[in-house]
Design a protein around this nucleic acid. Sequence first.
DNA 1: CATTTTTCTGTCCAAATGGTCAAAAAATGT
DNA 2: ACATTTTTTGACCATTTGGACAGAAAAATG
Lengths: 221, 221
Amino acid sequence: MTMVEKAAMEKGADSKKSKLTRIQREKREQILRAALDVFAIEGLRGATLAKIADAAGMSKPHVVYYFGSKDAIYTDLLESLLETWLSPLRELSAEGEPLAEILTYVRRKLRMSQDMPRESKLFATEILHGAPRTVDQLSGELKSLVDEKAAVIEKWSSEGKLANVDPHHLIFSIWAMTQHYADFDVQVCAILGQPRAEQLFDEADAYLTDFFVRALRPTVE
Amino acid sequence: MTMVEKAAMEKGADSKKSKLTRIQREKREQILRAALDVFAIEGLRGATLAKIADAAGMSKPHVVYYFGSKDAIYTDLLESLLETWLSPLRELSAEGEPLAEILTYVRRKLRMSQDMPRESKLFATEILHGAPRTVDQLSGELKSLVDEKAAVIEKWSSEGKLANVDPHHLIFSIWAMTQHYADFDVQVCAILGQPRAEQLFDEADAYLTDFFVRALRPTVE
DNA sequence: CATTTTTCTGTCCAAATGGTCAAAAAATGT
DNA sequence: ACATTTTTTGACCATTTGGACAGAAAAATG
């Protein structure tokens, strides 16, 4: 086993930054960036070490030297992604104004789809195929975060500050609608007649804001 | 070239049922069924002829005999799927009561996700990966259908029978939310704590109906 | 029953691909 | 300058996999 792998391996047990040197971290980063491009378009099976190596501008054995296997790259990518992916929901605060908090969340999530379409697709593909590498985190970390925030929304609803909706399904709606623009961009663009991506997300923003306001504003009686 | 392939090839030019004998159609059907299972889980690249042949209970060359290549099976599956996939939208009628029409559409689409999760995943994966085999149909057949129905919805909105929403984005919302339950079922179930699939779709139905009513009911002023 | 056509499979092959390995090149320490 | 460790790659290998092929089995046809 190489030094790099040994060092990389301690990531969990050791401190966050681990024992990787600056160069090692840069190289790994470089590979991950290239791999993201390839995996997002081709999927895990469709991607090849050669393509990744090529995209990263290095030889195939070099890639293996730094990660040990194609799967390891994929897994690493996925793991480091999950945290980022969850962060918008983390920021949803129980203290804020209910409707505004949710709209902000929607907007943040949409922004994330806009800025990280490859990551979105990677994640979507993984889940679509049964998430063999991720199920544990889904029903662990993710579930508890969602449950926590769902409770907050539930409370808002019961206090009449928000329409009475199932909070879990509301969160699913937000995920579905925001990620749709990143994951199925080809379809969306085909139907709208290829608008500029930038404009598309502005449209989506306006639409979603309006839509969720209507759906969530408490009914005045 | 085999007889089967020759006959199958004329599908487009010739009459719908083509020259295939009953047995040939049955065999092809059998292969397609098996392939759907495999493709939905493994994706195009992940699926192998061996797995498909195995799932169909026949030898690998036999599968090739009937379809010529793995890609041909995939493409065939995808093509025959598109029509089915669009049918709920086709049924949206300009004559009906606006809100009810849309709710019926949502329900039909959700039902389709429930009954055909593998097809949903297959389609989703294809789009996600850039839909190389499908872009033409997307920006042709699909686009015109969507445009047509969007015009209907637009009209409803302008007549005050429906809230004023962008009709294209509304359709995207419906797709996103209904398909989410099929495509990302693993995630949904992980978060909800594995409810029975049947119950899940009942919940989703109730939620979506309620949600779209709120969002689409014209604002009384 | 003979012949022709269609269906079906065992066997094989070439290409692609994940990964190894030895050794060169570069960096690092002394 | 020398020794040691780390980085980098060309060459190579084993396995997988899509698919070709020849011919057997079965069915249709006469």
